[in-house]
């Protein structure tokens, strides 16, 4: 569809932001976070415009095929970054989020099979809300994963007793652990609400693989959060847990939905 051009255009600022992040690491300098923020906002505007055009053309929330779902997911990650990054004063989050968003969008664009037309018949507000909340939750959990990666990078350098200039641009490890935990709780809450809405409103014929996937992800996040709150697992293990679960989501998300019947969100 012609709207894909705007998603391709959105990839340009995301790519520049990623390139800048890699340059900053290589050059041991990181002073222009406002440049990064500007790039992310430009990408987000184009990304949003793509979703708007798609919604207009299909007359539905753009969550009707795997392509739309993963693009919506990457949009939710950027939205969360823009909302949570400044609030939690983790300005460097954008530099870490950009490559993740870029990869997700490139995968969506480069696999045409994901973007097939569907004869989508709305199953009601509950299903749409379930889908929207779930993808938003994955976006939030994506940001938690980015914070977890930042934590692991900072922790690695501190453990290695090596202080490259980039370390001073990262937030303190203690703060990153707190941010990672809080954002995971937020994402997990959204996932839980989305799941409850889904179970409460989907009338018949839900897809067993999708439900199984959702429950599995929910249990995994629930497990690491309980472990964290009960001080059974350390911040490092929690961060690895966040990264591991989210990688599993990223790897399996599109496949699960590719096999699912479109009507059954």
């Amino acid at each position: 569809m012609a709207d894909r051009i705007f998603l391709s255009l959105a990839c340009i600022p995301y790519m520049l932001s990623s390139a800048y992040a890699f340059y900053a690491f290589g050059a041991k300098r990181f002073s222009r976070t406002h440049l990064n923020l500007g790039l992310m906002m430009t990408g987000f505007a184009l990304h949003t415009f793509f979703l708007y055009l798609r919604a207009v053309s299909i007359h539905h929330c753009p969550l009707t095929n795997p392509f739309e779902m993963i693009v919506f997911l990457s949009w939710a990650i950027v939205l969360n970054y823009l909302l949570l990054g400044p609030t939690m004063r983790v300005s460097l989050l954008g530099a870490f989020s950009a490559p993740l968003v870029l990869v997700i969008n490139l995968i969506a664009l480069l696999i045409p099979a994901l973007d097939y037309p569907t004869h989508y018949a709305s199953a009601g507000w509950g299903v749409e809300m379930h889908a929207g909340l779930s993808v938003l939750a994955y976006g939030t959990l994506g940001i938690a994963t980015v914070a977890a990666v930042m934590f692991l990078v900072a922790n690695y350098y501190l453990k290695m007793r090596f202080l490259p200039p980039i370390l001073s641009r990262l937030p303190p490890v203690g703060k990153l652990d707190v941010v990672c935990q809080r954002v995971t709780v937020l994402g997990f809450s959204l996932l839980t609400v989305g799941m409850i809405v889904g179970f409460a409103t989907i009338p018949t014929g839900f897809h067993i693989i999708k439900v199984g996937f959702l429950v599995l992800v929910w249990i995994a996040y629930c497990g690491i959060l309980i472990g964290k709150f009960m001080a059974k697992i350390s911040p490092v293990r929690f961060a690895y847990g966040c990264v591991g679960i989210y990688l599993f989501v990223l790897i399996t998300f599109w496949g699960i939905h590719l096999h699912a019947v479109p009507q059954h969100l």
């Binding site: 900072a154 501190l158 202080l163 200039p165 001073s168 937030p171 303190p172 490890v173 203690g174 703060k175």
Partner: peptide
Amino acid sequence: SGIGRGSVSVASVAIDLAEQIFG
């Protein structure tokens, strides 16, 4: 330039590290 980058005494390096850990 990087002329003023990084702490150069044991005490100031320790403080930098503490701030990097706790803020």
